[in-house]
Amino acid sequence: MAKLNISDEWWTAPAEADNGNLIMVTGRKGLQNVIDTGKYVYRIEMTWPYVPDATGMPGIDDSKTMEAVQDAIDDTFGHDPVAVVTGIYTGDGKRDWVFYCRSLNIFQRKLNEALSGFEALPLEFHAYDDPGWEEYREMCQAEVDSSD
């Protein structure tokens, strides 16, 4: 069986929280082939609440740790794509990662493996059945056309 080709092309666009604060949305492009497998049916939202600076963004220390967490996630799921990060939302005092995965149990095991080198992180998780990738499709509407 051929390895699934998962795009590493991303876009970033500003959005607005319900209270008017800035949210930077980063979305992964080109995932139709992953959607078409019909295997990535669970959406996991991983949230890291933080004390925001005056603009609602994380401070330097949180930003550095979040970047290291992202690198660990990319490395782990890049080698074993049981889950795909589809979007990252940062602002208004929290960072949200959105994953689509094949198995909740395997996702949990692989994420624990990815984060094993970190001290306890203030992460919150929510899981949803989303075989139609509704959140992903909605997020993609925020993409700004580079020709604009």
Rank of each mutant, 00 (worst) to 15 (best):
N5C: 11
N5W: 13
A13H: 06
A13I: 05
P14M: 00
A15Q: 06
E16L: 13
A17R: 02
G20S: 07
I23W: 01
V25C: 07
G27S: 06
G30C: 07
L31W: 05
Q32N: 15
N33M: 11
V34H: 07
V34F: 09
T37F: 08
Y40C: 05
Y42L: 13
T47M: 12
P52N: 03
T55V: 09
P58K: 03
G59N: 12
D61Y: 05
D62R: 03
D62S: 08
S63Q: 07
E67A: 13
I73W: 00
I73C: 00
I73V: 06
I73S: 00
D75T: 13
F77M: 00
H79F: 13
P81K: 03
V84G: 05
G91R: 00
G93Q: 04
G93N: 02
G93Y: 03
K94A: 08
V98G: 01
F99Y: 06
R102H: 06
S103Q: 06
L104H: 02
N105H: 12
G117A: 05
L123T: 02
E124S: 10
G132Y: 15
E135W: 13
Y136E: 09
Y136P: 10
E138C: 11
Q141F: 11
A142D: 14
E143L: 07
E143A: 12
D145W: 07
S146C: 10
S146Q: 15
D148F: 14
